[in-house]
Every structure is written in C-alpha cells, then in structure tokens.
Design a protein around this nucleic acid. Structure first.
Lengths: 364, 364
DNA sequence: TTGAAAGCGCTAACAC
DNA sequence: GTGTTAGCGCTTTCAA
C-alpha cells in the first residue's frame, strides 16, 4: 500500500463530528472550549493517533519554534560544548535547533544565514567565522529576526545592534600573565589564532598585565590561523632562535595548545621544568597531562545556555532591546608554570625524530 | 514601522506582471519556460530581493529537505565528529540538519523522534541512547520516513529493517588484545560503558583474541556507565586488590580512558612502564600523552558521512532497500603497551592526594 | 461556545 | 508556454 498519508486535523474533526476550528482550539489550549468538546476532540485525537503538523502550523502562525545555529566547526570541543548548552536551553523552551557548520568559511556563514531565514527560523545563534566579511555583514543586515552573537563582535559594522554573549577573556589572561610575570618571566610569547574577538581580548589581557606592573617590553605575540600546525611552527620559530627565546608560552586556544605541545615534545622540553606553559579553555588534555597545564578557564556550556537565553527573551517579547552579557573567565594555576630561570639559558636542541600528533585536525 | 513582511511570490508575479505559477516554474527550473519569461521573472526577483519561503514550499511539496539528528551527547568529541561528517554531507546535498541532544535518555530519544516527525523531516539519523527501550522502539516503529542508525543495532525489535552504519569494533579490538597477548599479558582488563553495540563488539573482539590463541582465561570485563567516574572506580578496584591485578587495561571508550588515566595517575602508575594501556578512538589525549596511548582507531567523520549517504540514497529513491555498512577499525601500536612482567609483581600502593580531572564530564 | 471560510506562501494539475 | 485554480494542514477572524 502507498504510505498512508498521516492523519490531518480534518480527519480528527470528521471522526469527532465537530468543526476543524474546534479541534484546533482544543489542541492549542484556547480558553473558550467546553469540557464536552475537549473530551470529544481528545478522544478522537487518541483514536487516530493524531499529531499536529508543525510545518503547517508554523506557516499559518508565522512562527516555527525553530532556531538556527551557525557554527564554524562543531567538532571543536569548545563549540560542541556551546552547542550543547544552547540546544538544551532551547529544547526546554520548546524550540528545535537547525545546526549548520560553516567550515570556518565566512561565505558559508553568509549563505547559511540566508538559508536559515528562508527556512523561517524564529531567531539565530551565531558563532561566526569572521567578524568583518562583507557578505556576512550584508547577510546580518538583511535579517529581520533577532539573533545573538556568541563571543563575537561586529558593533558598528551592522545597522541594528545585535545581542551578544561574550567571554571576558582579557581578565583571565591578565591574571595568567600576571602570574607568569610574578614568577619572574619577562619573555612571554602568546600564540594566537585568527583575528577574532577572543584573540584581541587575550592580547589585551597580556598587555594589561605588563602595563599593570610597569613593564614595558618582553612579550611577543604571534598571530596566525587557529590550527595546531600554525602553533607548532610558531613555537618552533620561538624556540629555535639563539637570541632570547621565551621562557613562557601562552596558547591562545585549545587547538593551538596541541601544536605547541607537539613542538615542545619534539624538542624534548617539559612544561613546568624547561619552560612555563599556559593555555586557554579546559579540555581533558590540560588536566591529564603531567604536569597539568595552567589554563584560563570559562564555562562553555554556560556560554551557549546564555546565548539561547538572550535569544529566547527577544523571541518571547519583541520589545526587548538587544543586550550584551559578559561571562567571567578564571585563571587556574598549575605546575606547568614555574619560576623563570635566573640566568640566560641555552635551550636543549631537538633530536630529529618522527613528528606525530599533528596529522589530525581534531584536538580530541 | 512594523517589520515589513517579506516579499512573497505574489508580489514577484505582480511586479513582473506574470502569473504566480510562472514565477514558480522559473524558480524551480521547470523546462517549459521561455527565455523572455525567465529574464522577466529573474529581474523581478532581483528587484525585490525575493527568496523562496522554504516552509511553504515544504508544505506543498511534501518534502522539507530537512533531516533530523538525534544524538546522546553532542559534547562528546566522537559524536561531534560524527555530526560534523553528517552535516557536511547533508548540506552538500541541499539538506539542513535539525539537531537534538537526548542527554543519553531513551525517553528523550523517543520524544524527539516523534517531534522531528511532526516537524516533517524527510529522514532521521539516530545515535540512540539505548537499543532496547520500549518507548524508543515504539517511536521507531511509528516512523513513516527512512532512518539510519549510527553504530547501533535494533534488529529484530523493530518492524521494518533499518539502515545502519556500523564500526567493526571487534576486529580492531581483537588485534589490540592479540598484541597484548603476544607481549605476554594474560590478565587483561576491559573497562566497558553502557551495554550498546560498541561494548558488545569490543567484548567479542577481546574474547576472539583469546580464543584465537587457545587461551581460555585471564581476562576480566567490567561493565558500567560510560562515565569517567565509573572507569576510575573500576580501575581502582582492579589495581587495589592483592590477588592478580591485571597487567594491562583496555579502555572501552575515550571517556572511560579519562577515568582510567586519573586513577593510574593517582596511584603513580605510568602507562608503558608499570602497566600496559590501550584505548578506543583517537583523541588529542592519546597522541599527546607521554607515552602516547595505543588505540583502536576509526574514522568518526566518515561514520557520519556514510550515515548521511545511506539516508540520502533512500531519500532520493524510495525503492532502495535499507542497507548496512560496516566501517573498519584499526589498531595503532604505541609504547603504552609493553611486555608483561615475567614475575607476579606487587603494584606500588597510592599516595593519598587530591584527585583531579574528574569533575568535568567533558573529555575535551 | 462553536462553525464557516479565508488565507499563510507555495506547487501542480489542468486548461488555454 | 502561460494562466487559472485547487489545495498542502493549519489558525483565526467573523458570525451565529
């Protein structure tokens, strides 16, 4: 037999011998319904196993109870945690999440923002690949639904001020670098990824820590991509040179940490012994390595949850103004940070051997 | 001003002074359209910035180009990788993904399967929390759209045979345990999570390795939850006893590995020195630890991609029978596996100290 | 309190 | 080739 089309509200109405609109009223909890009617309809619904078609409902109500989430790379555990937090909150509120990976490509960001709008999502959660891509900014300006940026800033480049949930990376980084400075380090290297908000903030935190102590120089900052490979090469460059190699390295993201660790390993340098090391964002890696790695920590799931919260507020009351929430970060000390060597030291040079751990993009 | 409702196909038709259906034909690439008409319509579309309403289109076409994905815990990097693989393939084919976390709760699985159906997804990708929950099985049987199981088996409990993409865990595990046996280990402990397909398969692989060598005993298997805490306690129990503690431990999942490592650390046992260790599924952790951990590896992204592929095939041609694809696993040797000690040894007892790394559920 | 009817934005016969 | 029309399954006036 042909796949019996699913039962519609019409059949329920027939079965109960009432008007379609009555079925609709009962099902959507309209107050002016008699008990008799309610019972009659509900029993027909049970008999037929009827379930509302949310697509048709959405078309008619002009509201789909659906939220779009655009994310650069869901396989990054950070973004996965954020996604988890957001989805849970949305689901609690009766919303479903349309998820799309942008492969860290601003063009895909832009295209997906448009596509999700065509799918009539009620709102958007955006963890964008870029903060200044023109196509993406145009897509944002074309939006007539509320959206929330997740740890991104596009202020000024966009017509209407967006909601945003941001991490206070600078303060955690300031603590971290302050700690290193207090341990006597002066030559501190910060390895950063792409020029997004978190990179800028982390840079600023480092600079503030130096400024706070009236130390004007010593640090260096290496920007690049957010790949482990970039971090590995940057670290290689830092440690390979004869003149004044850094005594402490700060990884600007968990992915970068992987590359830094690989290079340290290759050069047989042990964090907490030969060099001090700080990373950002707790992952299993930072806690289980020996010694554990000091990190600037934040609550990623909470980040997603709060993003969802901000969006829901605007979805439920469209007079609410866009708002920005700043979530804290916290520096967690670990033995990967030790006192700076008092004498200019010569780092051991590496023994050539097969590198490993860099083939895969995943940071696990 | 009130949010100007977005331009509809009616306005495009008016603007171009043609029939609505002509606009529809042009936009959906109907062959019988004159060039003049095409130009006229397209220029009106451009003028008005019209974009098809996919909700209305879906309602009418009875096809939404949307696929639902139910996953136990998206913050697990394994599932995140699978999700990534699936989403990418689906997006390439023009589909969007509705993602829902079931929090590893079979009731939520069941409810979300129903909800996604109400949202009229064209098909479903399922990484279920349970393989035998009655509510969930009922939800599966109520489905009138194709679905694909991701590394799960419900054969026999369900009316119509489902498509599935499975990992061949047993063969990789057999290799791994074979390797340990060849290194002289006899007392090998396998720490497993919940009783899902991958646990059964991994158990079978271990048993086959023993059988293959005509060794009939020595191994022990500890089942439990898939949490690091379970693994930590299980490992504690294994190593705490006086009589014949295992000389090798196999972690039945990446999450379990975290718990095992924590306990080993606490007891000051070094993998590859004091005890041999194998894990399942590559994560950054396994590669960057010193020494790196031997793993039974598989391609998670490919798992997701293949799942999407199987679904797409059935979406594009509904005469295609459900099919099952088995993807390989591979054992990767690492120095975490060493020869078994020749003499019965006494393991060093732990120094009490603060445990760490177990508070967070994330395995990074 | 209930029913009839219009219509959300689109597609697909069917007629011209 | 193009236009007219009847819905997809639902909600929501409006009248009764």
């Amino acid at each position: 037999m042909p796949p019996r089309s699913r039962t519609s509200i019409v059949e329920v109405a027939k079965h109960a011998d009432v008007a379609i609109s009555s079925v609709s009223r009962v099902l959507s909890g309209h107050p002016d319904v008699s008990d008799a009617m309610r019972k009659r309809v509900m029993s027909a619904v049970d008999d037929l196993g009827y379930r509302t078609d949310l697509l048709a409902q959405g078309l008619r109500r002009r509201e789909t109870l659906t939220v779009g989430f655009v994310v650069g790379d869901i396989s990054n555990p950070l973004l996965a945690a954020i996604t988890m937090g957001a989805e849970t909150r949305l689901r609690d509120a009766g919303y479903s999440m349309l998820l799309t990976n942008s492969e860290n490509d601003p063009q895909i960001d832009a295209a997906q923002i448009g596509l999700l709008q065509q799918r009539r999502v009620d709102g958007l959660l955006l963890s964008l690949a870029s903060e200044d891509n023109p196509a993406m900014l145009a897509a944002l300006d074309g939006l007539d639904i509320p959206y929330v940026l997740i740890d991104r800033e596009v202020d000024g480049s966009v017509k209407r001020r967006p909601s945003a949930v941001l991490s206070d990376h600078a303060s955690g980084m300031q603590e971290a670098v302050g700690h290193l400075l207090d341990l006597g380090h002066r030559r501190i290297a910060l390895v950063l990824g792409r020029p997004l908000r978190y990179s800028r903030q982390r840079r600023r935190g480092l600079e503030q820590a130096y400024a706070e102590r009236d130390i004007s120089e010593g640090f260096e900052i290496l920007e690049g991509s957010s790949s482990a490979e970039h971090a590995a090469r940057a670290t290689e460059r830092l440690l390979g040179r004869r003149e004044a190699p850094p005594t402490a390295i700060v990884a600007g993201s968990n992915q970068l940490l992987v590359g830094i660790l690989a290079t340290l390993h290759r050069r047989r340098l042990k964090p907490g012994t030969d060099i001090s090391l700080v990373s950002c964002d707790t992952v299993a890696l930072t806690e289980l390595l020996d010694p554990p790695i000091a990190v600037v920590r934040r609550d990623n799931r909470e980040l997603g949850r709060t993003g969802a919260e901000l969006l829901l507020r605007r979805l439920q009351d469209d007079t609410i103004e866009p708002e920005t929430v700043l979530l804290p970060t916290e520096f967690v000390r670990q033995p990967s940070c030790v006192a700076a060597p008092s004498e200019p030291q010569r780092l051991p040079q590496p023994t050539p051997r097969k590198s490993r751990g860099l083939e895969r993009g995943s940071i696990g």
